[in-house]
Design a binder for these strands. Structure first.
Lengths: 110, 110
DNA sequence: ATCGTTAATCGTATATTTGCGATATATAAT
DNA sequence: ATTATATATCGCAAATATACGATTAACGAT
C-alpha cells in the first residue's frame, strides 16, 4: 500500500468510518450485546460466551475501548467493562445525520 | 488466522457487521455523498473528485455494490452508479434497532 | 478497421486485521 | 511465601484490505 490515503478525506468522514469499523466485526457486536444485557463488568464472562480465545476477546475489547464505545477499569485481578452510552448515542446520531443529509442532497438535485 | 470465526456468530450480527464494514472507509462514505448529490451515473466523476487512482475507486465501488448499498449498470463504455436507498434505509433501521435493543436490555437488567 | 475513451480486472506491494498460544503482571487466597 | 486466578500483552501466522500501475474489454467515433 505504501501510503495511507485515509487522512486525505474530511475529519467527519474519517470519524464516522472509524466508528463503523469498530462495529464491523460480529464479535464486537456480540460483545456490545453482552455488555448491554449485564450492564457492566465481566470479561471472563464474555470469553465464556464467545467462541474465541481469551487473548482474542481482549483484543476486541481494546478496539471497542479505543473507539470510545466502551469504558473499562480494573477491579482487582479482573477488568470491568461497560458501554459508553453517550458515545454510542453520538455515533447513532452521526450515522442518522449522514443518512438524512444524503437523502436531502438527493432530493435537491433532481 | 487459519480459520475465520465470523460464521460462528448470528446471521444478524454478521449482516450488520458487513454493512458497517462497507462504510468503514472514508473513501466509501465520500463516494456515497457524491452519488447522493448527483443522484446517479458517474464513475469517472467520482475518480475526479477523490484523491485515489481509477482502479482503487473501482474497487471501492465494487465493495459498496457487493454490500448492496449501491446499484450499478453499464451504459456504453461507462458505468452508471446510484445509491440503493431501500438497502440504505434498511441498514439505517437495523442499526437503530440494535441501538434500541441494547438500551432496552440494559434498562431491564438493573 | 482503427483509434480513443472508460472502466473493470490482474498482478503486486504493503499494511492491517484476526486469531491463537505463551508469557507477564497483578491481585486474591491459602 | 506460594499458589491460583484473571487479564493484558507479545510474538507469530494467516487472511484481508488498501493502493497502484498495467492490461484488458467494451464501446463509440472516425
Amino acid at each position: 500500500m505504501a501510503i495511507h490515503k485515509k487522512e486525505e478525506f474530511s475529519t467527519k468522514e474519517q470519524h464516522l468510518a472509524a466508528f463503523a469499523k469498530a462495529i464491523s466485526h460480529p464479535a464486537r457486536i456480540a460483545i456490545l450485546s453482552v455488555l448491554a444485557k449485564r450492564n457492566q463488568c465481566i470479561c471472563g464472562e464474555i470469553v465464556d460466551v464467545l467462541p474465541l480465545a481469551q487473548s482474542t476477546v481482549s483484543q476486541h475489547l481494546k478496539e471497542l475501548k479505543n473507539a470510545g464505545l466502551i469504558d473499562g477499569e480494573t477491579d482487582g485481578p479482573r477488568s470491568c467493562y461497560c458501554i459508553n452510552w453517550k458515545a454510542f448515542e453520538k455515533f447513532n446520531a452521526e450515522f442518522h445525520s449522514l443518512f438524512e443529509k444524503l437523502k436531502e442532497a438527493n432530493a435537491k438535485c433532481c
